[in-house]
Design a binder for these strands. Structure first.
Lengths: 224, 224
DNA sequence: TGAATTTTTTGATTTCAATCAAAGCCTGAG
DNA sequence: CTCAGGCTTTGATTGAAATCAAAAAATTCA
Protein backbone atom coordinates (compact mmCIF):
# COMPACT_ATOMS: atom_id res chain seq x y z
CA UNK A 1 0.00 0.00 0.00
CA UNK A 2 1.33 3.41 -1.03
CA UNK A 3 1.22 5.86 1.87
CA UNK A 4 1.49 9.64 1.76
CA UNK A 5 5.08 9.27 2.94
CA UNK A 6 5.88 7.08 -0.03
CA UNK A 7 4.16 9.41 -2.40
CA UNK A 8 6.08 12.45 -1.26
CA UNK A 9 9.26 10.40 -1.29
CA UNK A 10 8.64 9.50 -4.92
CA UNK A 11 7.84 13.07 -5.80
CA UNK A 12 11.20 14.24 -4.52
CA UNK A 13 13.08 11.77 -6.75
CA UNK A 14 14.68 13.54 -9.68
CA UNK A 15 13.19 11.29 -12.32
CA UNK A 16 9.66 12.28 -11.35
CA UNK A 17 10.29 15.99 -10.89
CA UNK A 18 9.16 17.14 -14.30
CA UNK A 19 5.81 15.36 -14.24
CA UNK A 20 2.51 17.14 -14.22
CA UNK A 21 0.08 16.25 -11.46
CA UNK A 22 -1.97 14.04 -13.71
CA UNK A 23 1.06 12.16 -14.98
CA UNK A 24 2.34 11.74 -11.47
CA UNK A 25 -0.99 10.32 -10.38
CA UNK A 26 -0.85 7.82 -13.19
CA UNK A 27 2.60 6.75 -12.05
CA UNK A 28 1.32 6.28 -8.51
CA UNK A 29 -1.49 4.12 -9.78
CA UNK A 30 0.90 1.77 -11.45
CA UNK A 31 3.38 1.19 -8.70
CA UNK A 32 3.45 -0.88 -5.58
CA UNK A 33 5.54 -1.29 -2.46
CA UNK A 34 7.53 -4.42 -1.92
CA UNK A 35 9.18 -5.45 1.31
CA UNK A 36 12.32 -7.50 1.14
CA UNK A 37 14.10 -9.46 3.81
CA UNK A 38 17.86 -9.65 3.86
CA UNK A 39 19.04 -11.93 1.03
CA UNK A 40 15.71 -11.83 -0.80
CA UNK A 41 16.29 -11.90 -4.54
CA UNK A 42 14.42 -9.18 -6.41
CA UNK A 43 15.35 -10.49 -9.84
CA UNK A 44 18.00 -12.64 -11.43
CA UNK A 45 20.30 -12.05 -14.35
CA UNK A 46 18.49 -13.16 -17.51
CA UNK A 47 14.93 -12.69 -16.18
CA UNK A 48 12.64 -10.80 -18.49
CA UNK A 49 12.24 -7.23 -17.33
CA UNK A 50 8.81 -5.67 -16.89
CA UNK A 51 9.32 -3.36 -13.91
CA UNK A 52 11.86 -0.94 -12.61
CA UNK A 53 12.60 0.02 -9.03
CA UNK A 54 13.18 2.78 -6.54
CA UNK A 55 14.71 2.08 -3.16
CA UNK A 56 12.68 3.52 -0.31
CA UNK A 57 14.75 2.07 2.51
CA UNK A 58 17.51 -0.47 2.86
CA UNK A 59 20.24 -1.50 0.43
CA UNK A 60 20.21 -3.64 -2.69
CA UNK A 61 23.22 -5.07 -4.46
CA UNK A 62 23.34 -5.49 -8.24
CA UNK A 63 25.78 -8.16 -9.30
CA UNK A 64 26.75 -10.59 -12.00
CA UNK A 65 27.46 -14.26 -11.50
CA UNK A 66 30.00 -15.98 -13.69
CA UNK A 67 29.52 -19.59 -14.70
CA UNK A 68 31.87 -20.74 -11.96
CA UNK A 69 29.73 -18.99 -9.34
CA UNK A 70 31.97 -16.00 -8.83
CA UNK A 71 30.05 -12.88 -7.92
CA UNK A 72 31.02 -9.42 -9.13
CA UNK A 73 29.08 -6.60 -7.48
CA UNK A 74 28.36 -3.93 -10.06
CA UNK A 75 26.59 -1.48 -7.80
CA UNK A 76 25.12 -0.93 -4.36
CA UNK A 77 21.82 0.90 -4.69
CA UNK A 78 20.73 3.21 -1.87
CA UNK A 79 17.45 4.93 -0.90
CA UNK A 80 16.30 7.48 -3.48
CA UNK A 81 18.02 5.69 -6.33
CA UNK A 82 16.16 4.04 -9.19
CA UNK A 83 17.50 1.05 -11.04
CA UNK A 84 16.73 -1.06 -14.11
CA UNK A 85 14.86 1.86 -15.69
CA UNK A 86 17.32 1.97 -18.57
CA UNK A 87 16.09 -1.42 -19.75
CA UNK A 88 12.63 -0.11 -20.63
CA UNK A 89 13.91 1.10 -23.96
CA UNK A 90 15.26 -2.18 -25.21
CA UNK A 91 13.31 -4.49 -27.48
CA UNK A 92 13.39 -7.66 -25.50
CA UNK A 93 14.74 -6.51 -22.19
CA UNK A 94 16.19 -8.97 -19.71
CA UNK A 95 18.09 -8.00 -16.59
CA UNK A 96 21.84 -7.98 -17.17
CA UNK A 97 22.43 -8.30 -13.42
CA UNK A 98 20.83 -9.93 -10.40
CA UNK A 99 19.46 -7.90 -7.49
CA UNK A 100 19.46 -9.01 -3.87
CA UNK A 101 18.59 -7.12 -0.68
CA UNK A 102 21.58 -6.62 1.58
CA UNK A 103 19.27 -6.03 4.51
CA UNK A 104 15.55 -5.59 5.16
CA UNK A 105 14.48 -3.13 2.48
CA UNK A 106 11.45 -1.50 0.96
CA UNK A 107 11.44 -0.93 -2.76
CA UNK A 108 8.86 0.79 -4.90
CA UNK A 109 8.08 -1.15 -8.04
CA UNK A 110 7.00 0.59 -11.26
CA UNK A 111 5.34 -1.02 -14.22
CA UNK A 112 7.48 -0.12 -17.18
CA UNK A 113 4.78 -0.46 -19.83
CA UNK A 114 2.56 2.15 -18.24
CA UNK A 115 5.49 4.37 -17.42
CA UNK A 116 6.54 4.28 -21.06
CA UNK A 117 3.09 5.36 -22.20
CA UNK A 118 3.19 8.26 -19.81
CA UNK A 119 6.74 9.11 -20.86
CA UNK A 120 5.65 9.64 -24.45
CA UNK A 121 3.67 12.59 -23.10
CA UNK A 122 6.48 14.14 -21.11
CA UNK A 123 9.47 15.36 -23.07
CA UNK A 124 10.82 16.84 -19.86
CA UNK A 125 11.01 13.47 -18.22
CA UNK A 126 12.57 11.99 -21.35
CA UNK A 127 15.31 14.57 -21.03
CA UNK A 128 15.72 13.88 -17.33
CA UNK A 129 16.11 10.22 -18.09
CA UNK A 130 18.55 10.92 -20.91
CA UNK A 131 20.58 13.01 -18.50
CA UNK A 132 20.56 10.31 -15.87
CA UNK A 133 21.63 7.66 -18.30
CA UNK A 134 24.33 9.90 -19.63
CA UNK A 135 25.76 10.26 -16.15
CA UNK A 136 25.56 6.53 -15.66
CA UNK A 137 27.55 6.02 -18.85
CA UNK A 138 30.14 8.48 -17.66
CA UNK A 139 30.45 6.68 -14.35
CA UNK A 140 30.88 3.34 -16.06
CA UNK A 141 33.58 4.69 -18.36
CA UNK A 142 35.37 6.04 -15.32
CA UNK A 143 35.07 2.65 -13.72
CA UNK A 144 36.52 0.87 -16.74
CA UNK A 145 39.42 3.28 -16.69
CA UNK A 146 39.96 2.56 -12.99
CA UNK A 147 39.89 -1.15 -13.53
CA UNK A 148 42.29 -1.04 -16.46
CA UNK A 149 44.93 1.35 -15.33
CA UNK A 150 44.59 1.60 -11.58
CA UNK A 151 45.29 -0.81 -8.77
CA UNK A 152 43.26 -1.98 -5.83
CA UNK A 153 44.73 0.51 -3.41
CA UNK A 154 43.75 3.32 -5.73
CA UNK A 155 40.17 2.09 -5.95
CA UNK A 156 39.82 1.60 -2.22
CA UNK A 157 41.36 4.99 -1.41
CA UNK A 158 39.05 6.69 -3.91
CA UNK A 159 36.08 4.92 -2.40
CA UNK A 160 36.99 6.03 1.11
CA UNK A 161 37.47 9.65 0.09
CA UNK A 162 34.24 9.57 -1.86
CA UNK A 163 32.25 8.11 1.03
CA UNK A 164 33.75 10.47 3.55
CA UNK A 165 32.92 13.65 1.65
CA UNK A 166 33.54 16.58 3.99
CA UNK A 167 33.63 14.42 7.06
CA UNK A 168 36.58 12.31 8.12
CA UNK A 169 34.47 9.48 9.43
CA UNK A 170 33.01 6.60 7.48
CA UNK A 171 30.75 3.77 8.55
CA UNK A 172 30.86 0.99 6.00
CA UNK A 173 27.23 0.21 5.25
CA UNK A 174 27.96 -3.27 3.89
CA UNK A 175 30.11 -6.29 4.72
CA UNK A 176 33.72 -5.84 3.69
CA UNK A 177 33.57 -8.78 1.30
CA UNK A 178 30.72 -7.13 -0.60
CA UNK A 179 32.59 -3.86 -0.82
CA UNK A 180 35.66 -5.78 -1.95
CA UNK A 181 33.68 -7.29 -4.81
CA UNK A 182 32.30 -3.87 -5.71
CA UNK A 183 35.90 -2.67 -5.99
CA UNK A 184 36.94 -5.79 -7.87
CA UNK A 185 39.35 -7.11 -5.29
CA UNK A 186 39.36 -10.27 -3.20
CA UNK A 187 38.45 -10.03 0.49
CA UNK A 188 41.98 -11.03 1.49
CA UNK A 189 43.50 -8.33 -0.65
CA UNK A 190 40.98 -5.84 0.69
CA UNK A 191 42.05 -6.65 4.21
CA UNK A 192 45.71 -6.27 3.30
CA UNK A 193 45.20 -2.90 1.67
CA UNK A 194 43.34 -1.70 4.76
CA UNK A 195 46.22 -2.97 6.86
CA UNK A 196 48.68 -1.05 4.74
CA UNK A 197 46.63 2.15 4.96
CA UNK A 198 46.62 1.73 8.71
CA UNK A 199 50.36 1.10 8.82
CA UNK A 200 51.08 4.42 7.11
CA UNK A 201 48.67 6.18 9.48
CA UNK A 202 46.32 7.16 6.67
CA UNK A 203 43.30 5.65 8.40
CA UNK A 204 42.22 4.13 11.69
CA UNK A 205 39.77 1.25 11.76
CA UNK A 206 37.38 -0.19 14.30
CA UNK A 207 35.16 -2.80 12.70
CA UNK A 208 33.07 -0.95 10.13
CA UNK A 209 34.04 2.43 11.52
CA UNK A 210 36.83 4.11 9.63
CA UNK A 211 38.49 7.36 10.54
CA UNK A 212 40.55 9.23 7.98
CA UNK A 213 43.74 10.40 9.69
CA UNK A 214 45.74 11.60 6.73
CA UNK A 215 43.63 12.80 3.86
CA UNK A 216 46.63 13.93 1.79
CA UNK A 217 48.09 10.48 1.90
CA UNK A 218 44.84 8.92 0.71
CA UNK A 219 44.53 11.48 -2.05
CA UNK A 220 48.04 10.60 -3.08
CA UNK A 221 47.05 6.96 -3.45
CA UNK A 222 43.77 7.86 -5.15
CA UNK A 223 45.58 9.95 -7.69
CA UNK A 224 46.81 8.56 -10.96
CA UNK B 1 29.97 20.43 -47.89
CA UNK B 2 27.18 17.90 -47.43
CA UNK B 3 26.63 15.83 -50.54
CA UNK B 4 23.64 13.69 -51.44
CA UNK B 5 25.74 10.67 -50.49
CA UNK B 6 26.31 12.06 -47.04
CA UNK B 7 22.68 12.92 -46.66
CA UNK B 8 21.45 9.46 -47.52
CA UNK B 9 24.15 7.99 -45.31
CA UNK B 10 22.87 10.03 -42.38
CA UNK B 11 19.31 9.07 -43.13
CA UNK B 12 20.15 5.40 -42.83
CA UNK B 13 21.65 5.84 -39.36
CA UNK B 14 19.33 4.52 -36.68
CA UNK B 15 19.32 7.68 -34.61
CA UNK B 16 17.83 9.68 -37.46
CA UNK B 17 15.30 7.09 -38.61
CA UNK B 18 12.30 8.42 -36.76
CA UNK B 19 12.63 12.02 -37.93
CA UNK B 20 10.09 13.71 -40.12
CA UNK B 21 11.35 15.30 -43.31
CA UNK B 22 11.30 18.77 -41.83
CA UNK B 23 13.21 17.69 -38.74
CA UNK B 24 15.72 15.85 -40.83
CA UNK B 25 16.26 18.94 -42.97
CA UNK B 26 16.92 20.96 -39.87
CA UNK B 27 19.50 18.42 -38.77
CA UNK B 28 21.20 18.64 -42.15
CA UNK B 29 21.34 22.39 -41.88
CA UNK B 30 23.21 22.20 -38.62
CA UNK B 31 25.87 19.71 -39.46
CA UNK B 32 29.10 19.80 -41.37
CA UNK B 33 31.67 17.43 -42.75
CA UNK B 34 35.12 17.32 -41.28
CA UNK B 35 38.10 15.58 -42.80
CA UNK B 36 40.73 14.18 -40.51
CA UNK B 37 44.23 13.00 -41.22
CA UNK B 38 45.68 10.08 -39.35
CA UNK B 39 46.49 11.15 -35.77
CA UNK B 40 44.38 14.32 -35.96
CA UNK B 41 42.78 14.98 -32.59
CA UNK B 42 39.04 15.62 -32.81
CA UNK B 43 38.72 16.58 -29.16
CA UNK B 44 40.54 16.04 -25.90
CA UNK B 45 39.40 14.78 -22.55
CA UNK B 46 38.11 17.72 -20.54
CA UNK B 47 37.20 19.92 -23.53
CA UNK B 48 33.77 21.46 -23.35
CA UNK B 49 31.34 19.57 -25.53
CA UNK B 50 29.16 21.37 -28.06
CA UNK B 51 28.95 18.88 -30.92
CA UNK B 52 28.52 15.21 -31.45
CA UNK B 53 29.76 13.06 -34.27
CA UNK B 54 28.98 10.41 -36.84
CA UNK B 55 31.74 8.55 -38.64
CA UNK B 56 31.31 8.57 -42.39
CA UNK B 57 34.57 6.84 -43.23
CA UNK B 58 37.72 5.86 -41.41
CA UNK B 59 38.25 4.95 -37.78
CA UNK B 60 38.41 6.99 -34.61
CA UNK B 61 39.69 5.86 -31.25
CA UNK B 62 38.21 7.10 -27.99
CA UNK B 63 40.64 6.86 -25.11
CA UNK B 64 41.58 8.15 -21.70
CA UNK B 65 45.01 9.34 -20.68
CA UNK B 66 46.16 8.86 -17.12
CA UNK B 67 48.40 11.43 -15.47
CA UNK B 68 51.47 9.33 -16.21
CA UNK B 69 50.63 9.32 -19.91
CA UNK B 70 49.22 5.83 -20.09
CA UNK B 71 46.54 5.47 -22.72
CA UNK B 72 43.49 3.27 -22.28
CA UNK B 73 41.40 2.85 -25.43
CA UNK B 74 37.74 2.80 -24.47
CA UNK B 75 36.31 2.27 -27.92
CA UNK B 76 37.08 2.15 -31.61
CA UNK B 77 34.34 3.92 -33.53
CA UNK B 78 33.51 2.76 -37.04
CA UNK B 79 31.50 4.18 -39.96
CA UNK B 80 27.80 4.55 -39.18
CA UNK B 81 28.41 4.95 -35.48
CA UNK B 82 27.69 8.14 -33.57
CA UNK B 83 29.60 9.19 -30.50
CA UNK B 84 29.52 11.82 -27.76
CA UNK B 85 25.78 12.27 -28.27
CA UNK B 86 25.08 11.09 -24.73
CA UNK B 87 26.80 14.19 -23.38
CA UNK B 88 24.15 16.53 -24.77
CA UNK B 89 21.97 15.89 -21.76
CA UNK B 90 24.44 16.88 -19.10
CA UNK B 91 24.50 20.31 -17.55
CA UNK B 92 28.06 21.30 -18.16
CA UNK B 93 29.22 18.63 -20.55
CA UNK B 94 32.88 18.02 -21.11
CA UNK B 95 34.29 15.08 -23.02
CA UNK B 96 35.25 12.24 -20.69
CA UNK B 97 37.58 10.81 -23.37
CA UNK B 98 39.84 12.05 -26.13
CA UNK B 99 39.19 11.23 -29.80
CA UNK B 100 41.88 10.75 -32.43
CA UNK B 101 41.65 9.52 -36.01
CA UNK B 102 43.38 6.19 -36.53
CA UNK B 103 43.57 6.87 -40.26
CA UNK B 104 42.28 9.43 -42.76
CA UNK B 105 38.63 9.78 -41.82
CA UNK B 106 35.55 11.80 -42.57
CA UNK B 107 33.24 12.60 -39.70
CA UNK B 108 29.93 14.41 -39.72
CA UNK B 109 29.67 16.98 -36.97
CA UNK B 110 26.32 17.89 -35.40
CA UNK B 111 25.59 20.94 -33.33
CA UNK B 112 24.12 19.63 -30.14
CA UNK B 113 22.15 22.76 -29.21
CA UNK B 114 20.11 22.71 -32.40
CA UNK B 115 19.74 18.96 -32.25
CA UNK B 116 18.36 19.27 -28.74
CA UNK B 117 15.76 21.78 -29.86
CA UNK B 118 14.66 19.47 -32.60
CA UNK B 119 14.66 16.52 -30.23
CA UNK B 120 12.11 18.18 -27.99
CA UNK B 121 9.72 17.82 -30.96
CA UNK B 122 10.43 14.17 -31.63
CA UNK B 123 9.49 11.72 -28.92
CA UNK B 124 10.35 8.92 -31.32
CA UNK B 125 13.92 10.04 -31.54
CA UNK B 126 14.08 10.50 -27.78
CA UNK B 127 13.10 6.88 -27.45
CA UNK B 128 15.62 5.80 -30.06
CA UNK B 129 18.31 7.63 -28.15
CA UNK B 130 17.17 6.15 -24.86
CA UNK B 131 17.37 2.71 -26.43
CA UNK B 132 20.83 3.36 -27.79
CA UNK B 133 22.11 4.61 -24.48
CA UNK B 134 20.57 1.67 -22.74
CA UNK B 135 22.49 -0.69 -24.98
CA UNK B 136 25.63 1.27 -24.37
CA UNK B 137 25.15 0.89 -20.64
CA UNK B 138 24.64 -2.82 -21.05
CA UNK B 139 27.83 -3.11 -23.06
CA UNK B 140 29.80 -1.19 -20.46
CA UNK B 141 28.50 -3.38 -17.65
CA UNK B 142 29.52 -6.43 -19.66
CA UNK B 143 32.93 -4.89 -20.11
CA UNK B 144 33.35 -4.24 -16.39
CA UNK B 145 32.43 -7.82 -15.71
CA UNK B 146 35.02 -8.99 -18.25
CA UNK B 147 37.70 -6.83 -16.74
CA UNK B 148 36.97 -7.94 -13.19
CA UNK B 149 36.51 -11.63 -13.49
CA UNK B 150 38.07 -12.60 -16.81
CA UNK B 151 41.62 -12.71 -18.05
CA UNK B 152 43.33 -11.37 -21.13
CA UNK B 153 43.02 -14.57 -23.10
CA UNK B 154 39.30 -14.55 -22.52
CA UNK B 155 38.96 -11.00 -23.76
CA UNK B 156 41.08 -11.57 -26.83
CA UNK B 157 39.29 -14.81 -27.73
CA UNK B 158 35.92 -13.11 -27.35
CA UNK B 159 37.07 -10.26 -29.53
CA UNK B 160 38.23 -12.60 -32.26
CA UNK B 161 35.00 -14.57 -32.27
CA UNK B 162 33.01 -11.38 -32.27
CA UNK B 163 34.94 -9.88 -35.17
CA UNK B 164 34.81 -13.06 -37.19
CA UNK B 165 31.05 -13.50 -36.99
CA UNK B 166 30.08 -16.22 -39.46
CA UNK B 167 33.36 -16.05 -41.29
CA UNK B 168 36.57 -17.62 -40.09
CA UNK B 169 38.75 -14.84 -41.36
CA UNK B 170 39.60 -11.59 -39.64
CA UNK B 171 41.63 -8.63 -40.78
CA UNK B 172 42.62 -6.52 -37.83
CA UNK B 173 41.64 -2.98 -38.77
CA UNK B 174 43.99 -1.33 -36.27
CA UNK B 175 47.56 -1.72 -34.99
CA UNK B 176 47.91 -4.54 -32.49
CA UNK B 177 49.03 -2.19 -29.74
CA UNK B 178 45.80 -0.21 -30.08
CA UNK B 179 43.71 -3.34 -29.95
CA UNK B 180 45.72 -4.46 -26.94
CA UNK B 181 44.84 -1.26 -25.13
CA UNK B 182 41.20 -1.66 -26.10
CA UNK B 183 41.30 -5.09 -24.45
CA UNK B 184 43.22 -3.74 -21.48
CA UNK B 185 46.36 -5.75 -22.00
CA UNK B 186 49.93 -4.74 -22.76
CA UNK B 187 51.26 -5.22 -26.30
CA UNK B 188 53.76 -7.83 -25.07
CA UNK B 189 51.05 -9.81 -23.37
CA UNK B 190 48.86 -9.49 -26.45
CA UNK B 191 51.62 -10.95 -28.56
CA UNK B 192 52.11 -13.82 -26.11
CA UNK B 193 48.43 -14.69 -26.02
CA UNK B 194 48.37 -14.75 -29.83
CA UNK B 195 51.40 -17.00 -29.75
CA UNK B 196 49.65 -19.33 -27.37
CA UNK B 197 46.50 -19.43 -29.49
CA UNK B 198 48.70 -20.33 -32.45
CA UNK B 199 50.51 -23.01 -30.51
CA UNK B 200 47.27 -24.83 -29.73
CA UNK B 201 46.22 -24.50 -33.38
CA UNK B 202 43.26 -22.31 -32.53
CA UNK B 203 44.29 -19.62 -35.00
CA UNK B 204 46.76 -18.92 -37.76
CA UNK B 205 48.27 -15.50 -38.19
CA UNK B 206 49.88 -13.57 -41.01
CA UNK B 207 50.44 -9.97 -40.01
CA UNK B 208 46.97 -8.50 -39.52
CA UNK B 209 45.28 -11.45 -41.18
CA UNK B 210 43.95 -13.99 -38.75
CA UNK B 211 42.36 -17.30 -39.62
CA UNK B 212 40.30 -19.16 -37.07
CA UNK B 213 41.27 -22.82 -37.24
CA UNK B 214 39.53 -24.18 -34.18
CA UNK B 215 36.43 -22.28 -33.23
CA UNK B 216 35.52 -24.64 -30.37
CA UNK B 217 38.82 -24.03 -28.70
CA UNK B 218 38.39 -20.27 -28.90
CA UNK B 219 34.87 -20.55 -27.57
CA UNK B 220 36.25 -22.58 -24.71
CA UNK B 221 38.64 -19.78 -23.83
CA UNK B 222 35.97 -17.13 -24.33
CA UNK B 223 33.64 -18.92 -22.01
CA UNK B 224 33.44 -18.22 -18.28
C1' DT C 1 26.07 -17.69 28.25
C1' DG C 2 28.29 -20.38 25.17
C1' DA C 3 28.39 -23.07 21.01
C1' DA C 4 27.99 -22.43 16.12
C1' DT C 5 28.35 -19.80 12.22
C1' DT C 6 29.93 -16.09 9.63
C1' DT C 7 33.19 -12.55 8.73
C1' DT C 8 37.73 -10.90 8.77
C1' DT C 9 42.54 -11.32 9.10
C1' DT C 10 47.05 -13.50 8.55
C1' DG C 11 50.43 -16.50 6.40
C1' DA C 12 52.47 -19.11 2.48
C1' DT C 13 52.50 -19.86 -2.23
C1' DT C 14 51.29 -19.49 -7.01
C1' DT C 15 49.95 -17.23 -11.09
C1' DC C 16 49.08 -13.94 -14.49
C1' DA C 17 50.42 -10.11 -16.44
C1' DA C 18 53.52 -5.92 -16.27
C1' DT C 19 57.92 -4.29 -16.89
C1' DC C 20 62.53 -3.91 -18.64
C1' DA C 21 65.55 -4.90 -22.34
C1' DA C 22 66.69 -6.12 -26.82
C1' DA C 23 66.21 -8.19 -31.25
C1' DG C 24 63.46 -8.82 -35.60
C1' DC C 25 60.40 -6.99 -38.93
C1' DC C 26 58.17 -4.26 -41.78
C1' DT C 27 57.34 0.06 -44.31
C1' DG C 28 57.91 4.00 -46.53
C1' DA C 29 60.99 8.12 -47.63
C1' DG C 30 64.79 9.37 -49.95
C1' DC D 1 67.56 -0.23 -52.98
C1' DT D 2 68.51 0.92 -48.47
C1' DC D 3 68.23 2.63 -44.19
C1' DA D 4 65.60 4.97 -40.34
C1' DG D 5 61.89 4.64 -37.32
C1' DG D 6 57.81 2.48 -36.10
C1' DC D 7 55.70 -1.81 -34.85
C1' DT D 8 55.93 -6.56 -33.07
C1' DT D 9 57.94 -10.34 -30.96
C1' DT D 10 60.92 -12.71 -27.66
C1' DG D 11 63.42 -13.26 -23.37
C1' DA D 12 64.23 -12.48 -18.43
C1' DT D 13 62.58 -10.64 -14.33
C1' DT D 14 59.53 -8.46 -11.17
C1' DG D 15 55.36 -7.52 -8.97
C1' DA D 16 50.51 -7.23 -7.65
C1' DA D 17 46.96 -9.78 -6.56
C1' DA D 18 44.72 -14.44 -6.47
C1' DT D 19 44.53 -18.64 -4.28
C1' DC D 20 44.93 -21.98 -0.66
C1' DA D 21 44.87 -22.77 4.16
C1' DA D 22 43.95 -21.68 8.70
C1' DA D 23 43.56 -18.73 12.75
C1' DA D 24 41.17 -15.03 15.04
C1' DA D 25 37.34 -12.07 15.79
C1' DA D 26 32.66 -10.92 15.65
C1' DT D 27 27.71 -12.27 15.42
C1' DT D 28 23.84 -15.08 15.90
C1' DC D 29 20.88 -17.62 18.37
C1' DA D 30 19.54 -21.61 21.15
Amino acid sequence: MITAAHSSFIQRVHLFNGLQQQQFDSVLQHCKIMSLQKDDVLFSQGDMMSHFYLIYSGLVKLYRLSADGQEKVIEIVTPGQTFAEALMFLDRPDYPVSATALNASEVIVFESSSFLKMLAQSTDTCFTLLGQMSQRIRGLVQEIDNLSVQNGRHRLSSYLLDQAGESSHIRLPIPKAVLASRLSIQPETFSRIIKQLKSVQAIQVDGSEIEILDREQLEEYAMV
